[in-house]
Computed example of a mutant assay.
Amino acid sequence: MSVEVDSWKVTLPCTRAEAEAIDAGEFALDAVLMTTEEVEDDVERWRLDAYMEAEPDAAMLDALRALVPSAEGIAPVIEALTTEDWVKMSQEGLEPIREGRFVVHTSAHPVDAPEGGRAFLIDAGRAFGTGHHATTSGCLRMLDAMAALDFAKAIDVGTGTGLLAFAAAHLWPEAKIVATDIDPAAIDVTRVNAADNGIAGLDLIVADGALSDAITAQAPYDLVIANILAGPLVSMAPELAAIADADATIVLAGLLETQRAQVVAAFEACGCALQEVDRRGDWTILRLTAGAVRYVPSTPPDPKGRDGWALDI
């Protein structure tokens, strides 16, 4: 019986410096790039995994090798993945994580909700955001710590699996929650996950950043969450600040500590002020406050270079 190939994975070794450059960069590749530290605190032992729908050709392999010069002479590992392979691979080792009142688990590791808390079932799949990456778990902790605040309208930009939007819906059940992603597949995954977790009333929008009329028509938001990448955070700072209400809370993630100053500067230029930093290894989560007067960009935001901005892993 033939097995239908669902996607492809290419793996190459890399260094930490190369991984940081990949995480910070924007590349015109039809692939999702993921970097992983294989040996803790060893700057030479990192890994690049590239996921793509089509079988990688010579041009794709050459483009991936160019990202990791340290792997010169090493043959890439190329795997054909079925849907079953994808799910099995992504579920392996994903033990439940706990952040404040939240516990996030896969169907392979079911757990009960903590007393007074909330358990979310998020199976790994074609959209990222199981909560196991430091950026997402850090956002969960930051949102949990903000539970005493009052928000009427929140937006999760780059929602991935929907996890952060679900957390916001639990913390502020009376609030209007918008979840948006550039990838239609991510919105489909979020819709399924919302049903599995009994989350109702989310407004799910496929959109490129915050430029969609469906997003701006509902602005301003008093809570803006964006767990994406540093480059897009910098380029999107004016539009994210523009959809935020005066004195709104803005939670940013997906950036390395080495990229913090650049991201903070971009938002400070839009009238925002840094309030809190949560550093988790090489990754950093930021909480900012929008200016006392709602920001209005002097020029229309530039949507150029948005391909591949979603992270939420």
Rank of each mutant, 00 (worst) to 15 (best):
A119M: 10
V264C: 06
A75M: 10
A266D: 04
D6L: 12
D247W: 11
D181G: 08
S107E: 14
E84C: 01
L12M: 14
G308L: 10
T135E: 00
A165L: 05
H105V: 02
Q262H: 08
V189F: 02
H132Q: 07
V32C: 06
A241T: 03
A219P: 09
V68F: 03
L163D: 04
L202T: 01
V206H: 04
A167C: 11
D62W: 00
Q218H: 10
A113F: 13
T284D: 06
A219V: 05
T11Q: 15
P184K: 10
R45M: 10
A58I: 03
A19Y: 08
V251N: 02
G129D: 07
V178A: 04
T258C: 11
A169Q: 05
A266T: 06
A66V: 07
G138D: 07
I215A: 11
T216Y: 05
Q91L: 14
V3H: 15
D144Y: 06
W8R: 08
D247T: 14
L149Q: 15
A19H: 05
V192L: 12
L202I: 07
F102K: 05
A50P: 00
A152F: 04
T159V: 11
I187Q: 02
I122E: 00
W86T: 12
N193M: 11
A217H: 05
G209V: 02
